[in-house]
Computed example of a mutant assay.
Amino acid sequence: MSLDRPIAPDPYETLPPVSAFTLTSSDVANGEPMDSEFAHGSVGGGNRSPQLNWSDFPEETRGFAVTCFDPDAPTGSGFWHWVLVNLPASTTELPSGVGDRVEDAFSVRNDFGTHGYGGAAPPPGDRPHRYVFAVHALDVDKLDVTPDATPAYVGFNLAFHTLARATIRPTYQIKE
């Protein structure tokens, strides 16, 4: 069942431009398929968040947020898989499987309706979906949001507090 629709734009192309910094992972790579270990349990995956490491962000960075978004989800608004906020500026790596267990930080509810990381889960037979993992370097220590905030509300706040952004875009597909 391939859903016949145009490729969605990159979600960060429509936001005010910011500088970039370096994001790497030992688990996922730009344009490469993710292992099922990082897919959601509803599609037989391990639902583990991938390892992420970042560097070369602006000196004035006071905090970070990490997000994962699928712009290819057939929803009209994409699908938020992970929104982790209020990471201290001293945090430069998340180990594989951390989910939302990070001291002094928390996740808002993702589009699965749970807090923490929710792995890839595209419709079976659909084209490969892009999963945009982004680390946002912030000009504040903490965003003024609570765990009940929506990903869209966090995104609105990120638009006004992001100094720089680093992204990595692996893919995932479930063949029929």
Rank of each mutant, 00 (worst) to 15 (best):
R48C: 14
V108R: 11
Y117T: 14
V140S: 04
D111H: 14
G63M: 08
T92Y: 12
Y153K: 07
G41I: 11
S77F: 07
P147N: 04
S55K: 13
R101S: 00
N110E: 05
F79D: 15
K142V: 07
G41F: 09
P122I: 08
W54Q: 01
P74H: 10
V135Q: 04
V108M: 14
G63F: 14
V83N: 13
E32Y: 02
T91F: 02
Y131R: 05
D148P: 00
A39G: 11
G41V: 14
N53Q: 09
G116A: 11
G76Y: 03
E93T: 09
V132C: 03
P50A: 06
T146H: 06
P128K: 00
R109C: 06
A39F: 09
F64L: 03
S42H: 01
D35W: 00
V28H: 09
P124Y: 02
L138P: 10
L94T: 03
P74D: 13
P151A: 01
F64A: 01
S77Y: 06
H136R: 09
V132E: 02
D35E: 14
S77C: 02
R48D: 15
E32N: 10
V43N: 03
S26M: 00
V108W: 15
D139S: 12
P88C: 03
D141F: 04
M34F: 01
G99D: 15
F106I: 05
A29M: 05
A105C: 04
S26Y: 00
E103P: 09
F112S: 13
T67A: 02
G119D: 14
T92A: 08
G45N: 12
D27L: 08
V132P: 01
Y131K: 12
G44P: 03
S77L: 05
A65M: 11
G119V: 12
L138H: 08
P71I: 05
S107C: 15
W54M: 02
A121G: 01
R127S: 10
G118S: 13
F38W: 05
E60Y: 05
H129V: 03
N30G: 01
R62Q: 06
P124K: 01
E60N: 11
Y117N: 10
R130W: 06
G63D: 11
A89T: 08
A105I: 04
V28A: 06
G125D: 02
P95W: 00
D141L: 04
W82I: 04
Y131P: 01
D35H: 04
D56R: 06
N53M: 10
P122C: 09
F79L: 13
N47F: 06
G46T: 07
A39R: 01
D139G: 00
P33L: 13
V85H: 07
V83P: 10
R109N: 02
V98T: 15
A121R: 13
H40A: 15
D141K: 09
G125F: 06
G78Y: 02
R127T: 13
V66Y: 05
E60M: 08
T75Y: 03
P147L: 02
V98F: 11
E93Q: 12
E103F: 08
V28T: 05
A152L: 13
F133P: 00
L138I: 09
D148E: 11
D100V: 00
G45H: 10
A73Q: 07
G125K: 07
S42Y: 11
T91W: 10
F64W: 09
P58M: 06
L52D: 10
H136K: 04
F79A: 10
F79P: 08
A89Q: 08
